Structure formats: C-alpha cells, structure tokens
Simulated scan of single mutants.
Amino acid sequence: MAFNKSLAGYFDDLQHVGIPTDDLDKTVAFWEKLGFKMTGNFDTDDKGNQVVFMSYAHLTLEIWTGDGAVKKTGAINHLSLNTSDADAAYKAAKATGFTMKETEVQHLDFWDHGIKFFNIEGPNAETIEFCQIVKG
C-alpha cells in the first residue's frame, strides 16, 4: 500500500518505546542494570497500576503495568514519535489515509502539563504513537 502524502514534518524524533510488564520492580531493575535511569513514575488508575519512564542517552522507555506482558518476541507494545503539535499531526494522519486507532487526540496527566497523543496502525498491526509533551 503506497501513500501519496507523508507525515514527514509532523514529528522530529523517536520519543519512546512502550513495553508492558507484569512485574514493574523486576523490569525496572533489569533496565537499571543496563544503565537506564528512572525519569518519571506515574499512577495510571485507581487499581495500583503505574507507568515508569526510563532513559539512557537518547533512548526512553515507557514501562507500565495493567495490560499484561506478552512474554515472547513482539513484546514491545508501541513506538512513539515525538511531535510538537499532536492535533495537527492527527489531522494530517487522518487526511493521509492512515488507519487511526482513536477517534480523537487523547490526553493524560503525565509530566508537568500532561501529554497529548494518538496512535496509527502500521501494515503489520504495529502501533505507532504520536506524542506531544505539553509545555507550559
């Protein structure tokens, strides 16, 4: 399937890689042993689920509980591309004909001012997220 249009210009880099886990402490310890440092830790619901962000150099991981770990090849849940305007990127993705996984841009209370994001589906059913960390 070829697209006539592109989303180039609506993102500037890889933002993070998303990995669900059943054992947050064990997973954090594993990545710390590789040299990653925890840069964020947030509650995601009223059931005790959490999301942790870990960074090393230019790579950030989003690791969370509540969705269940796959525990086989394919365990990475999504790749996130950094965008400075999730609303504009959403409109462009929809107009370009990508398969949208949400009907609108989503919002979460991570970081100081929250995030805005949406997901598209790739040709192998992979999830590609466009994520904006809201500034001020």
Rank of each mutant, 00 (worst) to 15 (best):
Y90G: 10
Y56S: 14
A92T: 00
G74S: 04
E102G: 05
M54L: 14
N82K: 14
F42N: 07
A92W: 00
H58Y: 13
F42P: 06
A88W: 02
G97Y: 03
A93S: 10
E102D: 06
T65H: 05
L81I: 06
K72M: 05
A57I: 04
T83R: 04
G66E: 07
A89S: 15
G48I: 03
K71Q: 11
A89N: 10
D87M: 12
G97L: 07
V51K: 15
A95V: 01
M54H: 11
Q50D: 06
A57S: 14
Y90E: 06
D46Y: 03
D45C: 06
D45R: 03
T96E: 07
Y56E: 12
D43G: 05
S80D: 00
I63S: 03
H78N: 14
G48C: 08
V70H: 09
T60A: 11
L81A: 03
A92Y: 00
V51L: 14
S80H: 00
V51D: 08
W64F: 14
A88D: 05
K101E: 07
D85E: 03
T73G: 06
T60P: 11
S55Y: 00
Y56W: 09
N77H: 15
M100E: 06
M54F: 09
E104M: 14
K91D: 07
G66F: 09
A92M: 01
T73S: 08
D45K: 09
L81K: 04
A75C: 10
F98N: 06
L79G: 02
D46E: 09
D87I: 11
Y90A: 11
M100W: 06
G74F: 02
W64L: 12
L79H: 10
H58M: 14
H78P: 09
V70C: 01
D46H: 09
G74Q: 00
K91E: 12
A75K: 08
D87F: 08
T44H: 01
D45L: 10
V51R: 15
N82V: 02
A57P: 01
T83I: 02
M100D: 02
D87T: 09
E62D: 11
V70Q: 10
D85S: 12
A75Y: 06
T73K: 15
N49K: 05
T44Q: 08
G97V: 02
F42A: 02
L59F: 11
T83V: 04
D45G: 05
G74R: 01
A69P: 13
N49D: 06
V52Y: 03
A75V: 05
V52H: 07
N82P: 01
D43F: 02
L79R: 01
A57V: 08
V51Y: 08
A95N: 12
L59N: 11
K94G: 01
T65F: 07
I63H: 04
D46G: 12
L59P: 04
L79Q: 10
I76G: 02
W64Y: 11
A88K: 15
A88P: 04
S80I: 01
G68S: 09
L59M: 15
D67N: 15
N49W: 04
I76L: 09
V70L: 13
T99C: 04
L59G: 04
K91W: 00
G74T: 01
N77D: 13
N49R: 08
K94E: 12
E104F: 07
K71V: 05
L61Q: 03
T60F: 13
N82T: 03
